[in-house]
Amino acid sequence: MIIILFVLLLWYGGLFFQSFFLHRYAAHQVFTMSKTMERLTFILTWLFQGPSYLSAYGYGIMHRMHHAFTDTEEDPHSPSYDANLFAMMWKTKNIYQDINKQRVHIDARFTKNVPQWSTFDAFASSRFSRLLWGSLYILFFIVFATTWWEWLLLPITLLMAPLHGVIINWFAHIYGYVNFKVKDTSKNLFRFDFLMMGEGYHNNHHKHASRANFGYKWYEIDVTYLIIRVLNAVGLIQLKH
């Protein structure tokens, strides 16, 4: 039971910071926050994503490119141009690293106001940090795993952020339903997004990219947005709309 709770904590904790910070703040800037709050959120993102930590700079730019080039050859991740999800993940990793390490020229429209904390990212993305987190996770399993099948969950904890990404970037462009006709293959995965905390309303998001609430119909409850509303109400962030 402890292992299950640990995996759930990492799944939803890491997912929240990917959705709240990397996606809605870094890429789309649907709300603002103080520099202190931003730095704190960098650290919390690292704590919850651990060995699969993603930089706000690399993620933010790549996601803007995804919206600009959805389902074309220039899309960083698209089932329409990648043979399978593993090929897409590998290509996405390479593009992300090229952006994050500034090895390629990026149009200014994709970099404008994207948050960057270079010194922290260098540490959080380092091999040392990833190996440290991986070792701690393995140690946790050694201490608390009670059955053999719980060890099958270890790869999920080590690759949590890429798994979150592939669920949306692959499956939400193949399966699901649509509320809006758009010029791409984006779909809503679930009527109630219990798995991805609102990220699964991908068709809604592609239609209204700057909207803080990814839900549209009454039953499309965006859990991340509800938390954003609370953070806005207590003054930790400021919603733009």
Rank of each mutant, 00 (worst) to 15 (best):
W151T: 06
F180M: 05
A161V: 14
T157D: 11
E199P: 09
I142V: 13
F192Q: 06
F120E: 03
P162Y: 01
W148L: 09
R130D: 03
P155L: 05
P155T: 01
R130F: 04
H202W: 07
A172R: 02
Y177M: 09
S129T: 13
V166H: 02
G200K: 09
M196V: 13
F128M: 13
E150I: 02
L132F: 12
E199V: 10
F194W: 07
L154K: 08
F194T: 08
L158E: 07
S135K: 08
L132T: 14
E199H: 06
A124R: 04
V178K: 10
T157S: 15
K183Y: 10
H173Y: 09
L153T: 06
N179V: 03
H205C: 08
I174T: 07
I174R: 13
A124M: 09
L153S: 04
G198H: 05
A172H: 06
F140L: 10
F192T: 03
N203G: 06
R191H: 10
V178G: 09
L131T: 13
L189R: 07
L195S: 05
A122K: 15
A124K: 02
H164Y: 10
F190Y: 15
A145H: 11
S126I: 11
T157M: 10
F171V: 11
S186Y: 03
F194V: 12
V182I: 12
F180G: 06
I156H: 05
G200H: 11
W148P: 04
R191P: 07
L152I: 04
Y137R: 06
W170C: 05
V182L: 13
A145I: 14
I174L: 15
V143L: 04
H202A: 07
I167N: 07
Y177F: 12
N203P: 04
H173W: 11
P162V: 00
Y137D: 15
K187H: 06
L159C: 10
P162G: 00
S125T: 12
S129Q: 10
G134S: 12
N204D: 03
D121M: 00
G176V: 04
W149T: 07
V182C: 01
I167V: 14
L154S: 05
G134W: 05
M160T: 08
N179E: 04
I156R: 02
A145Y: 14
I167H: 09
T157L: 10
W151F: 05
A161M: 12
H205G: 00
I156S: 10
I138L: 11
F144A: 12
P155C: 02
F128W: 14
N169P: 12
Y175N: 11
N204S: 01
I174V: 15
M197R: 00
L189Q: 09
F120R: 01
